[in-house]
Design a protein around this nucleic acid. Structure first.
Lengths: 134, 134
DNA sequence: CCATATTATCATGGGCATATGATATTAGAG
DNA sequence: CTCTAATATCATATGCCCATGATAATATGG
């Protein structure tokens, strides 16, 4: 898996919430069932997304989760980055902490092109982009 | 980390062994110290690479590990794939088991280009390629 | 044969991601 | 005010990756 289980859950859940036509709040339980994700586990994940300012949460009846912003202003990096370290240590294939254009490891130049392509995908793709695609 | 700790150890160790000028066997202990990797742990990892036909091992005095083939005939996919699932489930960003051009998830088309680039890197880059680069 | 260096293997434990279960808190509806 | 549905939080379990330690098996050199 390229993403951790938790990050994958988060992304799928955000997409499901974003699909809600009128921005109505969606219950965590419904999303969990719809996506086949452990309900209690998803609950924590959604809460974390809310604290990160990606979702808004409301308690009580009629409560649930909704996007905190329009889908075209939420990048995949924001969602996934909350759980996985997309940038940072991911940079060097051989795990060196000091690996740059100036002090490259033997894989640096070849790997850089791939890593940059991947980073750009998460940085530039928005939730809305994916909804349009589906 | 893009690679598991074990796969990263394996790759770094294979590169170190490949650097040995005349294909002389290198002791696991020496590599472990040289790379700062737990010796006992690396031992098992190297053994696994030997069973996979990537390294050759010899016991006793003058024993150690050496490449089983020339470095330009060992791809990174062979080394890393022994420990991490590079292809397979890695294909779908959203974790679907059935995700293809015919039955795509919403991320499929955008993600495919990135994933293919990464797959090509591991498939087409050889140990010798990296040694030349360093 | 014996001593020694090295890989091969087994047994065990720690830590983290993942998951489950139970309870507390909050807010709407009648 | 009370009931209920939903999020928020705490406590606990589990499985795997990573790591450590100890022992067995094997081969070389004297």
């Amino acid at each position: 898996m390229i993403l951790s289980q938790t990050a994958e859950y988060a992304l799928r859940a955000v997409l499901a919430i974003a699909r809600e036509a009128d921005g109505k709040a969606v219950g965590a339980a419904r999303i969990a069932e719809e996506l086949g994700i452990p309900a209690n586990y998803l609950s924590k994940t959604l809460h974390q997304l809310a604290r990160a300012g990606i979702l808004e949460s409301a308690r009580g009846k009629l409560g649930g989760f909704r996007l905190a912003r329009a889908g075209d202003r939420i990048t995949l990096l924001e969602v996934v980055g909350e759980f996985d370290d997309i940038r940072g240590k991911r940079s060097c294939l051989l795990g060196r902490t000091t690996c740059s254009d100036h002090t490259p490891c033997v894989a640096h130049h070849r790997w850089k092109a791939v890593a940059e392509k991947q980073a750009a995908f998460f940085r530039d793709t928005t939730v809305a982009d994916l909804l349009r695609a589906g």
